[in-house]
Design a protein around this nucleic acid. Structure first.
Lengths: 127, 127
DNA sequence: GGTTGACCTGGAGCGCACTCCAGCTCCTAC
DNA sequence: GTAGGAGCTGGAGTGCGCTCCAGGTCAACC
């Protein structure tokens, strides 16, 4: 299967502009072109795009994604390095989740506070 | 207790520049000034700053924090609105955590893939 | 009374990750 | 054969959240 840039955008969840931007900055390899010079994405291309969106969603900076992308080119020899990057990134995602969870507690506390205010208010009316 | 801007920065985890920036854009009320015209933060000011850092850490955009900050000025009457904002924000933080967790699974899968490569490589040597 | 260091102001600059634009080409359908 | 729509390129613009800077004030210490 091949995909036009519009189809690749739809399936990856990135915009057309973002796809071209990622190509410009070396995050994705230039895809094949059709007879009219238009980009033609393969399933492999799409898989990579989808994986990139996962990395992006988890807050990996573009320069790190690019580093990872470039290691991919020197295939097997860099597998250790790439694995290491993913391990470190996974640790940072876990830390981020923990951080969010601790902030959630503060939100719970604050919301509880507002509920108490409401409660007091209702008591004041019904008393 | 009162705090110089440097002390407030240290205790809130924000930079001095960020404190002044937050004041400029209306995220924090202008604190009291000492005889020399320097900012003098109260414990209340500090509590608000710390809460702001929680909102920021959880990704609340500044314009929303500002809205919340401004509702605070019209005290009790806006408690419902503020609670609503926190409820919505809590939902978005929970969604974000879920999103990160689902990306973690992808990372686990990829890392597992690299481990399999290593394993195969070692088998190839020892066989 | 001179130096130092913290703090002040208004405004400019920055890094990130896009996003948009003008002006062009190419294919398709009428 | 022409109108419309998708896609192309290089480059400029945007929004966010700071961060930095120049030039000045003020209090304290030697």
């Amino acid at each position: 299967m091949t995909y036009s840039i519009a189809q690749a955008a739809e399936r990856s969840g990135l915009s057309i502009d973002t796809l071209r931007y990622y190509e410009r900055i070396g995050l994705v390899d230039p895809p094949a072109r059709d007879s009219g010079g238009r980009r033609s994405y393969s399933d492999d291309d799409l898989g990579w795009l989808v994986f990139l969106t996962r990395l992006r969603t988890t807050g990996m900076p573009i320069r790190m994604m690019r580093e990872y992308a470039q290691l991919r080119h020197r295939s097997a020899a860099t597998a250790g390095r790439r694995k290491q990057m993913l391990l470190e990134h996974r640790a940072s995602v876990r830390a981020r989740i923990a951080e969010l969870q601790s902030c959630l507690e503060v939100l719970d506390y604050k919301i509880g506070h507002y509920e108490q205010i409401e409660h007091t208010f209702i008591e004041g009316i019904t008393a």
